Computed example of a mutant assay.
Amino acid sequence: MDAWIELMQIPVKVKKTSKMKVQKTTRHDWSKEEIRGIHDQPLMSLVFEAASVHRQWHAPEQVELCTLLSIKTGGCPEDCSYCPQAARYHTDVNVQTLLPTETVLQHAKKAKIAGATRFCMGAAWREVRDNRDFDRVIEMVKGINEMDMEVCCTLGMLTENQAIRLKEAGLHAYNHNLDTSEQYYDQIISTRKFDDRISTINNVRRAGITVCSGGIIGLGESIDDRISMLATLATMEKHPESVPVNALVRVKGTPLEKNSRINIWEMVRMIATARIIMPASKVRLSAGRAEMSETEQAWCFMAGANSIFTGEDSKLLTTPNPTTAGDLSMLTNLGLKPMRKVH
């Protein structure tokens, strides 16, 4: 026994080895069959895989806080079936012309104080026109950029020259969602084509602006449509830096007002699948959060979501959204913290 004790007390020299660097690469050749296989696997296995990928690519405790402000509201000529800002639908949205530049800058300052690192501006336009309103948006972008915040815009269709002007003003990102699959697109929107969406995204890329592009579930689409939409994003030459996953907000007066509420597990599956096939992207839990419990949102964060929209006026453009105070309380409860801007 004494000999055994002496043996246990002999210091063991452990050979130090250098830490192996994990090679992180993204794939851009996903097939729809592969994506469907990921999406359809048992839920616990799917979430575990997504959470593992998330930890390889991101700080798992950090969540990006973004604020989205409607700088021009309602009166849009498009016929997007889900949108309360379409002029042809009778909703409670009041038409508001482009906000004064100083008003927008004040909103941005408040958002930064509240912890947001990205300020997004949305205008209910079909497309950007080269006029005084666009000149004013350029000034807004410059002003917010000078606050050391990331600036994002969603203004509708955009030419390459317009994208270049925004880039020169300091725009960091441009949001242009696919909404749904190419095959289902004309069931939701008839005033533009799916290819118009792709053209704008390409113009944004050529200008050197990062891309924010995702979609909406709950429009009446099939699982195959959801997979097709994800495949379009995941097979782009460069994945969108931000991928918003939205649940339809059913607004009275729109054609989709009677659609059923999306099941939380459908959201979790979409977020987890997006995280696995586009590992470097931020996956944003976007519209529909106001109808989700804290527990339901926690599942989405476990599945790889690491970005949310938050704001002082409880609005996501014109639809309900949790308050900043509520979001900060939730993050604290879940052991999460706001992401800091990376210089």
Rank of each mutant, 00 (worst) to 15 (best):
A3V: 12
I5P: 01
M8N: 13
Q9S: 12
S18N: 11
M20T: 13
M20K: 15
K24Y: 09
K24L: 15
H28T: 07
S31K: 06
G37H: 07
P42S: 10
L43C: 04
M44C: 08
A51M: 14
S52Y: 13
E64K: 15
T67M: 06
T67R: 01
L69S: 14
L69F: 15
S70L: 11
D79Q: 06
S81D: 02
Y82F: 15
Y82M: 14
P84T: 13
R88T: 12
D92P: 04
T97H: 14
L99H: 10
L99K: 15
T103L: 06
A108R: 01
A116C: 14
A116I: 04
A116R: 01
T117L: 08
R118F: 01
A124L: 04
W125L: 12
R129T: 08
R132F: 08
M140F: 07
V141A: 06
E150M: 10
C152A: 14
C152K: 11
L155S: 07
G156I: 03
G156W: 00
L158V: 12
T159Q: 08
N161D: 15
A169P: 00
Y174D: 07
H176T: 06
H176V: 09
L178Y: 00
S181C: 04
Y184K: 00
D186Q: 14
D196G: 03
R205S: 09
R205I: 13
R205H: 10
A207S: 06
V211C: 06
S213M: 01
G214F: 05
L219I: 03
E221M: 03
I223T: 10
I223H: 09
D224C: 02
M229I: 03
T235V: 09
E237G: 09
E237I: 02
E241W: 00
S242F: 05
V245F: 00
V245W: 00
P255Q: 03
S260L: 14
N263A: 14
A272C: 07
K282H: 14
R284W: 03
G288E: 07
G288Q: 09
E291S: 13
E294S: 12
E294Y: 11
E296H: 03
Q297D: 07
Q297R: 04
C300W: 04
C300L: 08
M302V: 03
M302Q: 04
F309K: 05
F309A: 06
E312Q: 10
S314T: 15
T324R: 10
G326Q: 05
L331N: 02
N333K: 15
L334W: 07
L334N: 02
L336N: 03
L336A: 03
P338N: 08
